[in-house]
């Protein structure tokens, strides 16, 4: 990538565990990735694979108890967020790193006016008076395409449609010129027609404001359309990391290829039946030291059942955690 030096966020060996009645759930177990200014990173995987927990951990928003970040670092502008005191953390949240969530229906406070919710964020992080902040909020609403923002800003969330609410969320998230925007399945709860609009909006604004985006999704279509790089997650770990075109062009990990194959495609009319990966993702409690995907894998080998394959760079800029691409003798 051309702006290689401008690394805004670095996640190193992040581990987030949840204590439950039946044992410790290793929701995120050693996830690492880098994020560069202006780029869009996609994190894909089935539900429950730890994508959302990863991103809540970046903001240190894991509900604790039961959750706890037990290891790893999140380096943002040279500081480890995990180790920061609460106050410093608050000045980053919503300001340098902001988030938009899956369900716009419940993510906005239904008891407060849109203006109140937007203005409080701006006043908190920017050196502005309330009236200035309101002007800025209206400006942001215009930017995300809310019609008649001067009027609509004094409405309550329930007076907006789902798509409009997500626009408001985006406006709010970007109102402080964030360096990183984490979008946690931002379109899952929306109608298909609205989905495209919202994605386009995020894409356009992030380019305009030079914001790095982490796009969490289970929808490979979203990844293909928006992301520069992709991390594929399975059972709390990253199993493949690649540039988007490489990943779709030639998926390495059997799970990745399974995911890609299971997307219905019109140009593959010969396919009689939709492809699906058999079986269920594993229970994350007491996962044995093996490849967690091996029970569902066509190409599973002996070693897959006894040892976890580390994420290894197999081509420049391309990492995969699979024994198929590794020298088995080396580690044994």
């Amino acid at each position: 990538m051309e702006n290689n030096k401008d690394k805004v966020l670095e996640v190193k060996g992040l581990q987030t565990y949840f204590k439950t009645d039946s044992g410790v759930v290793k929701a995120v177990d050693g996830v690492s990735f880098d994020l560069y200014r202006g780029e869009t990173l996609g994190i894909v995987g089935e539900s429950g694979c730890g994508k959302s927990v990863t991103n809540l951990s970046i903001m240190k928003l894991i509900p604790s108890p039961p959750g706890k970040i037990v290891g790893g670092e999140v380096i943002f502008k040279g500081e480890n967020i995990i180790a920061l005191p609460e106050e410093r953390l608050r000045s980053i949240r919503g300001n340098s790193i902001s988030m938009i969530f899956q369900d716009p229906m419940t993510s906005l406070n239904p008891f407060l006016k849109i203006s109140t919710q937007m203005v409080e964020t701006i006043v908190l992080h920017q050196d502005m008076s309330k009236s200035e902040a309101k002007k800025k909020a209206i400006e942001m609403l215009t930017l995300v395409g809310i019609p008649a923002p001067e009027k609509r800003i004094d409405s309550y969330p329930h007076q907006f449609s789902g798509g409009m609410r997500q626009r408001v969320m985006i406006a709010m998230a970007l109102s402080c010129n964030a360096d990183v925007l984490i979008a946690d399945e931002p379109t899952t709860a929306l109608d298909v027609t609205i989905q495209a609009q919202i994605l386009e909006l995020i894409d356009e604004l992030s380019k305009k404001l030079n914001t790095a985006v982490i796009m969490i999704t289970h929808d490979l279509g979203v990844v293909a359309g928006m992301c520069d790089k992709v991390c594929v997650m399975y059972a709390g770990r990253i199993v493949e990391k690649a540039l988007t075109e490489d990943l779709f062009g030639k998926p390495f990990h059997p799970y990745t290829s399974g995911l890609i194959q299971s997307v219905p495609r019109l140009d593959h009319a010969t396919q009689e039946k939709l492809f699906s990966i058999e079986g269920q993702p594993p229970n994350l409690i007491d996962l044995p030291d093996c490849c967690p995907f091996h029970p569902r894998c066509h190409k599973a080998m002996d070693i897959c059942r006894s040892k976890y394959p580390k994420l290894t760079e197999v081509e420049p800029g391309r990492e995969v955690a699979c024994w198929l691409y590794m020298d088995k003798g080396e580690d044994k």
Partner: peptide, 12 residues
């Protein structure tokens, strides 16, 4: 609730 998570994410 989700909206309190939003509020936390805003750094309030």
């Amino acid at each position: 609730s989700d909206y309190i998570r939003t509020a936390k994410a805003k750094g309030l």
